[in-house]
């Protein structure tokens, strides 16, 4: 047992809940910034999963290959930062065109 007293399932339940909240936010929120935050929530839920699985594996180290779960999480954090930078840039661009940050308003294309 390499983890603490908290069982692994708690982490997984928490991550699943965060993921579900994020998914709900993406689908239900209309503000572009809020959608971006919801996407971040989903990415971080996956991060919690990765770190929890890594911490609770009985035989960590070489068995998992040279790339351990924490390394995955660090890369994912970097990717999330890049995604936010691009997302904010696109939201700004759309805001200048429509003077609105509401994703429902961006509807010149349909059919």
């Amino acid at each position: 047992m390499t983890g603490g007293d908290i069982p692994l399932s708690w982490f997984l339940l928490f991550a699943s809940a965060a993921f579900a909240i994020g998914l709900f936010g993406v689908l239900a929120r209309r503000n572009a910034i809020a959608v971006l935050m919801a996407i971040e929530l989903m990415l971080n839920a996956a991060n919690i999963n990765l770190v929890a699985f890594w911490r609770y594996s009985d035989s960590p180290g070489p068995e998992a290959g040279p790339i351990a779960g924490v390394m995955l999480a660090i890369f994912v954090i970097t990717v999330a930062a890049a995604e936010v930078a691009v997302g904010i840039a696109l939201i700004l661009l759309c805001y200048r065109r429509w003077h609105a940050a509401d994703v429902d308003r961006y509807d010149s294309l349909a059919g």
Binding site: M42, L50, F53, L72, E83, V86, L90, V103, Y106
Partner: peptide, 24 residues
């Protein structure tokens, strides 16, 4: 601009779903 925004929202949600599947 709309094309980029829609691609971004759908694409990054898809990435997040993929990543969660990857973590499992």
């Amino acid at each position: 601009a709309e094309a980029g925004m829609k691609y971004f929202v759908y694409g990054s949600v898809a990435s997040a779903l993929f990543l969660f599947g990857l973590s499992l």
